[in-house]
Structures are given as structure tokens and as C-alpha cells.
Lab assay of single mutants.
Amino acid sequence: SKICLVCGDEASGCHYGVVTCGSCKVFFKRAVEGQHNYLCAGRNDCIIDKIRRKNCPACRLQKCLQAGMNLGARKS
């Protein structure tokens, strides 16, 4: 099975251009559409994995963007 390129959980498919799990898919959509201005309490290098993905939305969003997630991406 495929793994989420953001948190490493089991992926549910290709979302916004990137193979991700459902949790990261929903997080990314809400983060971008809600125009959240997340700030990292650390050094913008928090570990984002299945267990810690909820700890720092700033670093999670950064990881989504680095993976290439794009709200305008067509479903493939």
C-alpha cells in the first residue's frame, strides 16, 4: 500500500496532486481555504509523522506544500 508523503500514514489516494492520507488531505484543504496563519513554536523543523502530525500545523502545512500539494490540482 502507498504511504502519505506528508505524515507517512497509509495513503488513501492522490489528493491535490500528491499521494496523501485522508487526514492530511482534509487538513490541507482547511488550512488553505481558511487562510490560517499558523506559526511554529519551534524552528520550523518539527517532525511530522502519523503520531505527531497534529502537534504543529505550521510545519505540517509547510510539508504539504513542499510535497507539491496544490488546491487547484486536478484529480488524477
Rank of each mutant, 00 (worst) to 15 (best):
C40A: 01
N37Q: 12
Y16H: 12
I48F: 06
L5Y: 08
L39K: 13
D9T: 07
V32Q: 12
K25I: 08
I51M: 14
H36E: 13
V6L: 02
K25V: 11
C56R: 02
H15F: 14
C14A: 11
A58N: 11
Y16G: 09
C64T: 02
C14L: 06
I3H: 06
V26L: 10
I51H: 15
C24S: 00
H15E: 11
Q66E: 15
Y38T: 10
F27M: 00
L39H: 13
E10K: 14
C21A: 00
N55V: 12
V32H: 04
K29P: 08
P57M: 14
V32R: 07
I48D: 06
S1V: 14
G72V: 14
C14D: 12
D49I: 03
K75Q: 15
F27V: 02
A41S: 08
L61W: 13
G8E: 08
L71S: 02
K29H: 13
A58D: 07
C64P: 00
C7R: 00
G8L: 08
F28D: 01
G68I: 03
G22L: 07
L61Q: 13
K54N: 14
L39E: 10
N70E: 11
G22H: 06
L61T: 02
S23L: 06
I51P: 05
V18A: 05
R43Y: 08
Q66G: 10
S23I: 02
G22S: 09
V18H: 02
E33L: 06
M69V: 03
A11Y: 03
K2M: 08
A58R: 11
C59M: 00
I51G: 12
E33D: 10
K75D: 09
K2F: 03
G68D: 04
S12Y: 15
Q35I: 12
I3P: 02
R52N: 14
C24K: 00
G8Y: 03
A11I: 02
Y38C: 04
S1M: 09
Q66P: 01
V19P: 13
M69T: 02
C46L: 01
F28T: 02
C46M: 01
Y38H: 09
G17D: 11
G68H: 02
N44K: 14
L61A: 03
N44R: 13
L61E: 03
C21K: 00
S76D: 11
C21N: 02
R74G: 12
N44Y: 10
C46D: 01
R53C: 04
C21T: 00
I47C: 15
C7W: 01
T20R: 01
V6W: 02
G22N: 03
S1W: 05
N70C: 04
C4K: 00
C7I: 01
K75G: 11
F27R: 00
R74P: 11
E10L: 11
V19A: 14
V19E: 15
F28G: 01
K75M: 11
C7V: 00
L65Y: 13
S76A: 07
T20A: 08
E33I: 05
Q66R: 12
S1L: 06
D45M: 09
K29F: 04
D49Q: 04
V18T: 02
D49F: 03
R30H: 15
C21D: 00
N55Q: 14
I51A: 12
K25A: 08
C59E: 00
V18G: 06
E33R: 11
